[in-house]
Design a protein around this nucleic acid. Sequence first.
DNA 1: GTAGAGGCTGAATCGTGGA
DNA 2: CTCCACGATTCAGCCTCTA
Lengths: 381, 381
Amino acid sequence: MASSIKTGSAGASRAAARAGAGELPLNQIVAGDCIEAMNAMPAGSVDLIFADPPYNLQLKGELHRPDNSRVDAVDDAWDRFDSFAAYDRFTRAWLKAARRVLKPDGAIWVIGSYHNIYRVGAALQDLGYWILNDVIWRKSNPMPNFRGKRLTNAHETLIWAARDEAGKYTFNYEALKELNDGVQMRSDWVLPICSGGERLRDENGDKAHPTQKPEALLHRVIVGTTNPGDVILDPFFGTGTTGAAAKRLGRNWIGIEREEAYRKVAQARIDAVVPYDLDAVRVTRARRKEPRIPFGQLVERRLLEPGDLLYSINGRHVAKVRADGTLVARDARGSIHQVGAALEGAPSCNGWTYWHFKKDGRPAPIDVLRQQLRAELGDGA
Amino acid sequence: MASSIKTGSAGASRAAARAGAGELPLNQIVAGDCIEAMNAMPAGSVDLIFADPPYNLQLKGELHRPDNSRVDAVDDAWDRFDSFAAYDRFTRAWLKAARRVLKPDGAIWVIGSYHNIYRVGAALQDLGYWILNDVIWRKSNPMPNFRGKRLTNAHETLIWAARDEAGKYTFNYEALKELNDGVQMRSDWVLPICSGGERLRDENGDKAHPTQKPEALLHRVIVGTTNPGDVILDPFFGTGTTGAAAKRLGRNWIGIEREEAYRKVAQARIDAVVPYDLDAVRVTRARRKEPRIPFGQLVERRLLEPGDLLYSINGRHVAKVRADGTLVARDARGSIHQVGAALEGAPSCNGWTYWHFKKDGRPAPIDVLRQQLRAELGDGA
DNA sequence: GTAGAGGCTGAATCGTGGA
DNA sequence: CTCCACGATTCAGCCTCTA
């Protein structure tokens, strides 16, 4: 997994040229402007983008028009409208380039504060992204408001959006539930700000980057919305938190960063990261991803036999197993699901958990028989 | 403090005419469209606006809980818009009318969710409002995500903005600090949703309004950003939570509401409110609990790393930590508690005391890591 | 009277894959 | 592309009923 820093103002296109058509600068930091760099990458090639764009609306010298020409005359004479308009142009330009490099089922995370997140959110929606959640990073140790003129600004906002409304985005529901002690992960995440030993410092002991994000935040994002081996792109790489967390978790990463000083710090940081071992990176798998076992197989394999009786979970109904894997009850016949739904007058029913068989005289859901069969057929979860 | 409902489709202008030039329909519910009604009011006459506009949810089909019960969703006509552009036109129109009736030092609160809040925030900025904070209402009891396709949507966002960048908005720093046990009020507020006895119901026992807000939320807004005697306007009055809280706290209120059914409920509700003594101090405080620290947080925060080994208290078993905070042992996988119980053949197991990690070569229970994290995160985790 | 079980509900952009 | 069967999926709080 060799890494190298691309340098020079045309670094992005050189990197793309070197990589060859259809190749990505995987696990590398690309130097240069993120819009140019993304436009030099093949379309539809990235699984996830994590972006921490500049917040400041007075982006002296950092704004670019959609055609990449630099916005000049950015000075204090700008009124608010011009400033917002310029920020919007910048935002829409990089979000458009980002959308191009995303796979159809890809997704994006953008983090921001009230200064910029409303511009970003509106732009995402206007460009066709589909917001899945907004997430609040609730800082456990925020900086107080010293002047007592406002509330302590104790959170930042992340927007999670699919490339398209129809996109089949990655969401590791079970893994996040596990991370949260067995209850669904909520949209508010309590995490401390990046400080102490995690905070990167330069030779003077000053912080290397003003807005370094905690790696725990990226851990949750990456575990929850990517799979091992996925490609994660960060267009505002900074000191490389995204790359460090991605490498640790066995994902591929691409960083884009304009400032050489940040690139150096990031590269050294990522070089020092030792990835977790592969089976530790694996994550609890959703049930719907497990191989499908038709109920009929239970009968074929004689875990249940034609004529056996099944009892509903509430004890109110009985059904008889038939040789073709259907059930017959007093008023219904059909699949385990159909009969369950019919007897309960429900729109649907999961027959695997609804129907119970007698095991040593005690009722057990037929799902345990399915599990048994899955284990036999060899299923490494 | 007499109250009366204005009726009729031209109610707004009639009310304004009756009030006479320069007068406001104080402590009254105005019938009609909020833009017309606000335009009929004198400019620069309102101290605070609290607005709970339609969220433009764009729901598709029906949603059922896992127990097959149907979720009673917000499908009212007033929440349907044809496009983001239509929603933006509506939003900018009412925000513009709202800005006109605000005093120069006035301020506005708008509440929303990710469906609409980015449109609202961008419009506020474009129209010249100056955002002071965004505030996160963290719901202590949100509705879960029943299909496991996204994060539990556990919060809503409020934007607090001054009419002008230069506005000398009202902010009762000390009062909010008192409300918050003597420490600065933060930008995230933990409050339960409106339910139980507070939830208004019609004669059938159905909820009178699909999105009634908790009065505690308005209490905090009003105590923090108005003074007694101020005029508070709510252009989407609904069942009058703003009016009820304002009356209780000795503020003047104006409600605008199109639907007669809501106006009736609101009027009866507010008539029944008995204002507090002027010098009474009431503290609304969310219940405080010992913060729960999921084992997964130890992994995210790298107090333990994926791949690390844990040893059972009796030394008989080993397990490996995974990235989602589960353990894998030879014959079991799952949470720290599940794996401990499985290996011991016990019905349950406290993983926090059962599992030990190696600290300076000596075993220590993982519970010490939890204690460490709890101290760092403080309360509210 | 009281403890516990069970039911109900809340601003929700809440399928998928094979035929 | 559509159609349709399969079958996955919930947390906190309040209210009611029963023992």
